[in-house]
Design a protein around this nucleic acid. Sequence first.
DNA 1: CAATCGATTGCCT
DNA 2: GGCAATCGATTGT
Length: 189
Amino acid sequence: MIEPSRRPGGAADLFAGSVFDVAPRLLGCRLRTAFGRRPVEVMLTEVEAYAGGDDPASHAFRGRTKRNAAMFEAAGTLYVYRSYGLHWCMNVVVGPPDLPHAVLLRSGQVTEGTAVVQARRGRSSHLTDGPGKLAEALGVTGAHDGTSLVAGPVRLVHGTHPPGARIITTPRIGITKAVDRPWRYILAS
DNA sequence: CAATCGATTGCCT
DNA sequence: GGCAATCGATTGT
């Protein structure tokens, strides 16, 4: 019997390679949760790469802290932090444990569980078009920081791109340092 | 121990 | 388009 997660093309290989390999690869992939028997799935459409100690905009630029500890875990770990005291933002940890690189998940489209998401977000549109919105839609909080995206409560799995979709890159946004680096990846249809 | 500020959002005009 | 909200990690006195 073949273990599904070890099968070629399974989830683990999604996180192999550098942060610049993984970031565009995540576009079109699906992020899933099923808290309280309410499955929600989102297709990722916008991500940003953060290159650890080489990147002034990265939370890990000045080394390990209590907040960013998850960034020093294995590739495929989920890093969740609070932004502006209000919102939760999700990152996919990439690279070997001593290299704190990560991909910020910025936005997506709901592909399953729209009613659940609308209830959580308290509105019927603009459900997942921002980092904080994405986390709220999936029910993800700081409690999920450091969990595995392969075997934990929040899972990242392969998905297919919409017909005709293309990947474009632009500078990152919402930051004040290293603003010029074109490390933002968008799945445009 | 106090001050500062951020990988943002939503509501206001 | 502008601005207030809100909190924990980090930095300064």
